[in-house]
Computed example of a mutant assay.
Amino acid sequence: MEDMIRIAVDGPSGAGKSTIAKAVAQRLGIDYIDTGAMYRAIGYKMLKKGINVDDLEGIQRLLDTTEIDFSKGDIILDGQVINDLIRTPEISKQASSCSAVGIVREKLVDLQQKMGGAKSVVMDGRDIGTVVFPDAEYKFFITASPEERAKRRYNELIEKGQKVNYDQVLADITDRDHNDSTREITPLRKAEDAIEVDTTNMTIEEVIEYICKEMK
């Protein structure tokens, strides 16, 4: 347990957190936990069940019967791999909305803390260094300009065969930035002791090298 490390990677939507965190975890030989995917999974299930974000009783019943796990790079919701199903603009909006619901955050933060309390992990999200693991051994805040983040997300969705409009992707990212940073419950913010990395003009490999160098 003395050798166990937690690496917190926070930042706004589309900054490349997941890609960076996953690569760093692979390089270090430790597990990667995509907390954003956990909120997307809840949002996806809420949409499927027709549960509104204002229906707290319905959300609680849903949470009581929900299992989320990670295996070999897949996120598994109630036994089903849902990787591509939760990577749509609609689910992004739903994830942002449900992440502002107290009982949802309480449930998922508890799961995240249990995961990071049992083994070394790289965990990315919006409140890892401030709420989930304020005592993490390493903290990084990954960001980029809204335009660059929109371009990356647009290209990602196009490669997956989805029909999207760049201006709409940019508007969605701007809206989510506002929602995430102004919500009452654990808003997006950089931890005071986190290292900020602006990836606007950096390649993925450059960011990975920078983070690994800082950790050394």
Rank of each mutant, 00 (worst) to 15 (best):
G116C: 13
F133V: 12
V131L: 00
N165P: 01
S181T: 15
D10P: 12
A21K: 05
R126S: 11
A23N: 02
V122F: 04
F70N: 03
M46G: 11
I68L: 01
S13Q: 12
K22S: 14
V164W: 06
L77R: 04
K45C: 03
D167Q: 08
E156P: 05
S181N: 02
T200R: 02
Y32C: 02
A171Q: 14
T199H: 06
E90V: 10
V131A: 00
G73D: 11
F70C: 01
K49H: 10
D69P: 00
R87M: 10
D198Y: 01
V9P: 07
I33F: 11
R152Y: 06
T186S: 15
I75H: 01
A37H: 01
S71E: 14
T65R: 05
V131Y: 00
C98K: 00
S181I: 07
K45T: 13
I204Q: 13
L47H: 10
Y44V: 10
K17T: 12
D177P: 04
I86M: 01
L62A: 14
D135Q: 09
E184M: 12
I204A: 07
Y154L: 08
R87L: 11
M115A: 13
G125D: 10
E90F: 03
D110H: 11
L170R: 09
V132D: 05
K17E: 06
E205C: 03
K151M: 08
E214S: 11
D3P: 00
I185K: 02
D124S: 09
V24C: 03
V9N: 04
K48M: 14
T199G: 08
R61T: 15
K93W: 13
T182K: 04
